[in-house]
């Protein structure tokens, strides 16, 4: 009888912390232990007593990679609870945000987290040495997803400098918010769109 064990104490190239242990006997997998040692942050409990205005800003920090999904999900839940219907424009902008997030996280997953396995290299950095063109393309794609989410996609006719060449201030200046500032009034936060 042949016995083998496979043990990876810290799984690499995944977001989150975990380890895996596999016991194989006679080419048959007998035992699989997946251990997740992610610390608890108890976000649900942290939200108690917070103002509705502050919920999205907190919830979006649940996970960096899918922060846009958490943002939209939290907003939809709040709107549901408060009986608010959003405008088509808001709805469309959220769709754009989510698409940006999908592009970014898929490019990250394919090029930085998954592909190195297929080429038997430890990370995207080694992959860049052997396949510079492909990796550069992947990173550009990822950047596009980020720029959509940040509202800083280059529009050549209106912005001549590349966003990454400016300071943080200029990078965020081309914003999705109409005219960039002060569009949200506290006095009437939920206008007549309420159903």
């Amino acid at each position: 009888m042949s016995k083998r064990t496979l043990s990876i104490p810290h799984l690499g190239r995944v977001e989150g912390h975990g380890g895996i242990y596999v016991r194989i006997e006679d080419d048959e997998v007998r035992e699989v232990n997946l251990e997740v040692y992610e610390g608890s942050r108890y976000y649900e409990a942290l939200l108690r007593g917070k103002h509705v205005d502050d919920v999205q800003g907190i919830i979006t920090r649940v996970c960096a990679i899918c922060s846009a999904s958490h943002t939209v999900a939290a907003l939809m839940a709040l709107e549901d609870a408060l009986g608010i219907t959003v405008s088509t424009r808001t709805h469309t902008l959220r769709g754009l945000l989510l698409l940006g997030s999908t592009i970014e996280s898929h490019a990250l997953h394919i090029f930085a987290l998954a592909l190195p396995d297929f080429f038997h290299v430890p990370s995207v950095l080694e992959l860049a040495a052997s396949h510079p063109r492909e990796v550069t393309f992947g990173l550009k794609l990822k950047q596009l997803g980020n720029r959509i989410q940040e509202g800083s996609v280059d529009v050549p006719s209106t912005r001549s400098t590349r966003a990454s060449e400016g300071s943080a201030a200029s990078r965020t200046s081309a914003s999705c918010a109409p005219s960039g500032r002060n569009w949200r009034r506290r006095s009437n936060p939920w206008p007549a769109r309420s159903s």
Partner: peptide, 16 residues
């Protein structure tokens, strides 16, 4: 949330 590590990966122009 891994956001700070992700910000390093988000330095797409500089990473390599």
């Amino acid at each position: 949330c891994a956001g700070d590590q992700l910000q390093i990966l988000n330095c797409e122009d500089e990473l390599l």
